[in-house]
């Protein structure tokens, strides 16, 4: 199965990004293809490499970044939502890229399912 994933919340306030991450990891382990993970609304904050949570807590920016690089999963941050929130190319953790909302629609067109995680 080809899956598109939509993440609508940032890494600190809501559990949505955690659940999306665990779901994506489980899907990869089962051999499914992740077409793209698309970060929208405050979800764009998952890409900010300057985030520095306490060391005894999970760091979702790093976790997504590693997942993206290890499995070749596209991690796309919405340009319009990113600009609003001051996220730009200089702040992106490895594996993330900024692109248009069209990338979300395209993930929906190519994918067999689109799963939304948000608040």
């Amino acid at each position: 199965m080809k899956l598109g994933i939509l993440v609508n919340e940032g890494p600190f306030t809501h559990q949505a990004s955690d659940t999306a991450y665990q779901f994506t990891k489980a899907a990869l382990e089962k051999g499914h293809e992740i077409v793209r993970v698309f970060f929208y609304h405050d979800g764009v904050n998952n890409s900010n490499k300057q985030a520095d949570p306490p060391s005894d807590d999970r760091n979702l920016v790093t976790l997504w970044s590693e997942l993206g690089q290890e499995h070749g999963v596209e991690l796309v941050v919405c340009v319009a939502a990113a600009m609003r929130r001051g996220i730009n190319d200089d702040l992106l953790a490895a594996g993330f890229k900024i692109s248009g909302l069209g990338q979300l629609v395209e993930a929906g067109i190519i994918g067999d399912r689109l799963v939304t995680f948000g608040d």
């Binding site: 489980a26 899907a27 089962k30 499914h32 399912r113 799963v115 939304t116």
Partner: peptide, 13 residues
């Protein structure tokens, strides 16, 4: 959760 997504035709959150 992944299996359910595959089993059903679409997901509404």
């Amino acid at each position: 959760f992944v299996d359910l997504v595959e089993e059903y035709s679409s997901v509404q959150s």
